[in-house]
Design a protein around this nucleic acid. Structure first.
Lengths: 140, 140
DNA sequence: TGGAAAGCCTATAGTTGCTACAGGGTCAAT
DNA sequence: ATTGACCCTGTAGCAACTATAGGCTTTCCA
């Protein structure tokens, strides 16, 4: 199949497929007489593997490692576990950060209920206090 | 004060200060005889304002708007509220995404308890199933 | 007073994971 | 024969920095 069909079947952009090839994630495909890329089932599955890992928030460098494991299943899977653990820690940290952020934003938002002049706005007052190094609501 | 002191006092990188100037967030400072940038309290406070907003996850384009409001407090604060609301929605969405991701990652991680060959590893088995379009643990 | 280290300058490239052109060739249908 | 869809390469753009390279100026210490 050509790149368009591959892209359609994986829900991936054509440009993205070429990008993955350039980055060394996708195996270099064959070419037809016109120079068009020709893909086989192997490529389709690798691409789906990549997209699935991306949907789990993994980085391309990590996916490259996982692809190596996928293509050489004799290896010890210890590093797969380590990689996943690191990913979990990273996402956990991000979620915590988002949570803190939300609390701060809600506190700040509550400072201005109605439409008024900026000079009277509780949100801007808080932000301006922070700018002066004073205490503000959102960063205790 | 020169750029180094400004950076030290705000916990900001020197390069970042110059970057903000180039992006039009920081007012262009004066220069001394040697061409070094000279900053006043105004710049210090603006920079602290910027960093504070960044710590709330705001984008530079949004901060630019907030700086306008800060410098012209006669305006109606309606757009400040709207901006904050949008920011809250965005962060909320991100947090939800992180949460889903974590669930999936934990499910996947539980598939491999011990160190073994990749061929036997439950994690890799799941990822490979997903690659074939089959059902996998982490995406229902 | 000399020389080195620290600080500042500009300009440019790299990071991540794509996305969007520009400018061109190929293929299928009308 | 020509239109439109598809494919090619190569390059630039996004966001918000970070990190050089190459070259001044200032400051400190002997």
């Amino acid at each position: 199949m050509r790149i368009g069909e591959l892209a359609r079947r994986t829900g991936c952009d054509v440009e993205t497929v070429r990008y993955y090839e350039k980055e060394g994630l996708m195996a270099v495909p064959g070419r037809d007489a016109a120079g068009y890329r020709l893909y086989a089932t192997r490529h389709l599955e690798d691409l789906q593997f990549i997209r699935h890992c991306r949907s789990l928030g993994m980085r391309l460098a990590e996916i490259k490692l996982l692809l190596d494991f996928r293509h050489d299943p004799q290896q010890d899977c210890d590093r797969v576990n380590t990689l996943l653990d690191a990913q979990i820690v990273r996402v956990e940290e991000q979620r915590r950060a988002m949570h803190t952020l939300l609390e701060q934003l809600h506190l700040l938002r509550a400072e201005c209920a109605s439409r008024q002049q900026v000079a009277e706005c509780g949100i801007m007052r808080n932000l301006n206090q922070a700018a002066k190094g004073e205490r503000c609501l959102c960063h205790e």
